[in-house]
Amino acid sequence: MALNTPQITPTKKITVRAIGEELPRGDYQRCPQCDMLFSLPEINSHQSAYCPRCQAKIRDGRDWSLTRLAAMAFTMLLLMPFAWGEPLLHIWLLGIRIDANVMQGIWQMTKQGDAITGSMVFFCVIGAPLILVTSIAYLWFGNRLGMNLRPVLLMLERLKEWVMLDIYLVGIGVASIKVQDYAHIQAGVGLFSFVALVILTTVTLSHLNVEELWERFYPQRPATRRDEKLRVCLGCHFTGYPDQRGRCPRCHIPLRLRRRHSLQKCWAALLASIVLLLPANLLPISIIYLNGGRQEDTILSGIMSLASSNIAVAGIVFIASILVPFTKVIVMFTLLLSIHFKCQQGLRTRILLLRMVTWIGRWSMLDLFVISLTMSLINRDQILAFTMGPAAFYFGAAVILTILAVEWLDSRLLWDAHESGNARFDD
């Protein structure tokens, strides 16, 4: 018995066209964080690309023209004298008006014999932002004059995390709450300039795509075929072959399989920071003279006294001054041990922890910024005066060393310790 099946006739004509040209192939790229070699397709503007294995951002879609970056830099340069030299806060102490600005706080630190601690604050609040705007201006002028731009481009990517104007702005709020127990506070004209400078700096850093600047100024022929001998440069993120001198053909720094002496430098910085954190938390970090009496505060006791007036601000200072430094030390110690013992479990967790400490590390400088600003506000000789204690130097040095330890660690070593050939990683 035959089955009668109805015929289905399409209502619209289906047209099949042959592909007349070869589909576009992607360029081969190595991930600078996990060293995976993959094919990167062509990316349009405002599109980002991520590593298929570790999800690290390979290409950032946010990109401004150099002219727009230069305009932002010149605007920031105009704001800087007002943000640093004009009063941020006014207080009335014992019937006398006192003005506080950024430069005055750094000068008070240096004047009291601790120039190293003052230079830490100076670099993060004044030096690094000033280098940022002058570097962008150098790129703008240098591109037109045919100057060598490689050193500036190499420095810009590392400079971003040292620009800490946003953290200093939080420190202004913390210092205001600490001082309000002794005097009446009012915002100064410099505060508005400083807030504007923070906003412009944040926007500029978020749109400063150094890798795209490398592509514009020093374009290189990408690798179009897969080759395990391809290496990625950690300076400019170019994937290719080393030249005859073993250097990256684009930025001219040595092109090595792994960062040289990464573990040794990381261990040295980490152990030194552990040693410095002990006096930083045991010795007094601030000293207040009130009517001839002397009151010393460690980091913890200062947080407890701050909690009596504002528990939320005390929580912020606790996280930045105690929780973050010790968390960074514990995480980095764990990561280094996992590399030495070739741990194969929990790779995803370790990668996330490394990215976390990379982002939060700079916030530990908050305590030094609060001390710097408070020193310029309260300084009335023996009637009422505020000065920093010996722990300030140890704390600042420990924070900087932990930042350097994270920067010096080559994250690809975590993958080397893991089993080879993993296309995915999980716990």
Rank of each mutant, 00 (worst) to 15 (best):
M1R: 00
A2V: 07
P6K: 10
G20Q: 11
G20P: 09
R25F: 10
Q29F: 10
Q29W: 13
Q33S: 11
C34F: 00
F38W: 09
E42K: 14
E42R: 13
I43C: 12
H46G: 11
A49M: 12
I58M: 13
D63K: 15
W64Q: 15
W64D: 10
L66T: 14
R68F: 15
R68H: 05
A70P: 12
L77I: 11
P81G: 06
F82Y: 15
A83L: 05
W92N: 02
R97I: 01
A100H: 04
A100Y: 02
M103H: 06
G105I: 03
Q112M: 07
G113K: 15
A115C: 05
I116Y: 09
T117P: 05
G118V: 02
G118A: 13
V121D: 05
L130E: 02
L130Q: 04
L132C: 07
T134W: 12
S135D: 04
A137T: 05
W140P: 04
W140G: 08
R144Q: 13
M147I: 03
M155E: 07
V163T: 03
V163L: 15
L165V: 12
D166N: 15
G171P: 00
I172E: 03
V174N: 06
S176V: 05
I177G: 11
K178V: 00
V179A: 14
Q180K: 07
Y182M: 15
I185Q: 03
L191I: 04
S193E: 02
V198R: 14
V198L: 14
T201S: 08
V203E: 05
H207G: 15
N209C: 11
N209H: 06
V210K: 13
E215R: 14
Y218Q: 03
Q220S: 07
R221H: 07
R225W: 07
L234D: 13
G235V: 02
C236T: 00
T239C: 06
P249N: 11
R250S: 14
C251N: 00
C251I: 00
H252Y: 06
I253T: 04
L255M: 10
L257I: 05
R259N: 06
R260Y: 06
R260T: 03
L263I: 06
L263F: 09
C266M: 06
A269D: 03
S273D: 06
I274E: 08
I274L: 10
V275L: 07
L278Q: 11
P279A: 14
I288Y: 01
G292Q: 05
G293C: 06
G293F: 07
G293A: 05
R294A: 05
E296F: 08
E296S: 07
T298N: 08
I299E: 00
A314S: 04
G315N: 14
V317I: 14
V317R: 00
F318P: 00
I322H: 03
V324L: 15
F333S: 08
F333G: 09
T334Y: 13
L336P: 04
H340S: 08
F341E: 06
Q345V: 11
L347H: 12
R348Y: 10
R350L: 10
M356P: 13
V357M: 13
T358H: 09
I360L: 13
R362W: 01
W363M: 05
W363F: 08
S364T: 07
L366D: 02
D367T: 00
L368Q: 05
L368N: 10
L373Y: 05
S376F: 02
A391H: 01
A391R: 00
A391G: 05
A392P: 10
Y394N: 09
A398E: 06
I400A: 15
T402L: 00
I403K: 04
A405L: 02
A405K: 04
E407K: 11
W408I: 03
W408A: 06
L413Y: 11
L413I: 13
L414M: 11
W415F: 11
D416P: 06
H418R: 06
S420G: 09
N422E: 10
F425W: 14
